[in-house]
Design a protein around this nucleic acid. Structure first.
Lengths: 210, 210
DNA sequence: GTCTATAAAGTGATAGAC
DNA sequence: GTCTATCACTTTATAGAC
């Protein structure tokens, strides 16, 4: 096969396959050859669609961010909007936890990431937050969401009672975390998001008073 | 040189060199050969001290956690203790941001990480938080700290006014973030930590009322 | 406990045919 | 826009000498 009538590949197909591969086997397992094999083509074909592997990774990260729902921002009261956006943001990242280190590096030149940053900052400023504060809130929300998506807390504990008993007196039940992994992780995110937004509302009220 | 009189290497020396290498050149640049060269030995020598490269990485991650100050936990009122611990935790991680993805994977079987988890959980339970809540708080604090340490927020924006002006109406000054990077990142962490702890104090008060 | 030598494989990317 | 062939290099880890 030299040049097929209709293209076998597209940026979209490549990105989708890359995400699937990274999800299952991790970021380190993403090689151009492996990805190409998955797509039924040979390695170098990918270079007709992306200049470098890094290019491809950037596109994949932006595709993840594209799925975040930013419609509440600016359309609802800021505490509610922040909560809804953060929840959607976390869900989008948590679907591809192995890609979080890439998405973590900031928006760079990725259009969807920039659009999201613009919406968050814009909504906060329009709600009455001083620009300086709005920047901070955008940053601290990202911190929390990225941290929550970048790895299970409960899953970090080994399911082996013998490990904890002797040396760590308060962790006697830590081996049971694995079993309730999802509940613990999502509960912690919700509790943290509530606390964070409640704390920010306090701060906002104090700011208005003056 | 066959077997030197006194060992050239030690786990400590290897870990220190690995951290230095990862700090400057990133996690991907850590190869056994490169590390060995830095230490003035040949590649395979490292395997006398660590069974695998992964072993070495785990030891490095635990060495970072060992530097977190956990003494406030249990010694001071929980909101103050939480704040002090989180600040120290972030500082320790932020000194080695490239290693954060490794440290993020939970304590596993690393002694210092387990000791830290034990201290946090223990302090919260003894302060009167129900076990379930204490677990969540440990998790959500880690989310925030890890997120804050895993990459600069401000540094994720390109220093190029032309990029933002046209398409992102609220980001017209985003190119200036790079210049105030440190201030923005640390300010956001402090503001977030304040909000988080304030929100948790509210929650604690409501819990006590019942 | 360090060395040399080497296994066995995988890496990103390019050139040029079709 | 895909192919084959290939470059130039890197990787982790083992075997056995000293």
């Amino acid at each position: 096969m030299a040049r097929p009538k209709s293209p076998l590949l597209s940026r979209e197909r490549i990105v989708a396959a890359a995400l699937a591969l990274v999800d299952v086997h991790g970021l380190a397992a993403l090689s151009t050859r492996r990805l190409a094999t998955r797509l039924g083509v040979s390695g170098p074909s990918l270079y007709n669609h992306f200049a470098t592997k890094d290019d491809l990774l950037e596109a994949a990260a932006d595709a993840v961010i594209a799925r975040v729902d930013i419609t509440p921002l600016g359309a609802r009261p800021w505490p509610e909007a922040l909560r809804a956006w953060a929840t959607s943001y976390r869900r989008a990242l948590a679907e591809h936890p192995n890609l979080v280190p890439v998405a973590t590096q900031g928006p760079g030149r990725r259009p969807h990431a920039l659009r999201m940053a613009d919406a968050v900052y814009g909504a906060l400023v329009e709600a009455g937050w001083p620009p300086r504060e709005a920047t901070r809130i955008g940053a601290l929300m990202r911190y929390f969401v990225v941290g929550a998506a970048s790895g299970s807390f409960a899953g970090g504990f080994v399911d082996d009672p013998a490990l904890y008993g002797a040396h760590y007196p308060h962790l006697t039940d830590a081996h049971r975390l694995q079993a309730h992994r999802r509940e613990v992780d999502e509960g912690a995110f919700e509790t943290g998001l509530d606390a964070l937004v409640a704390g920010l509302e306090l701060r906002f009220a104090r700011l208005r008073e003056r």
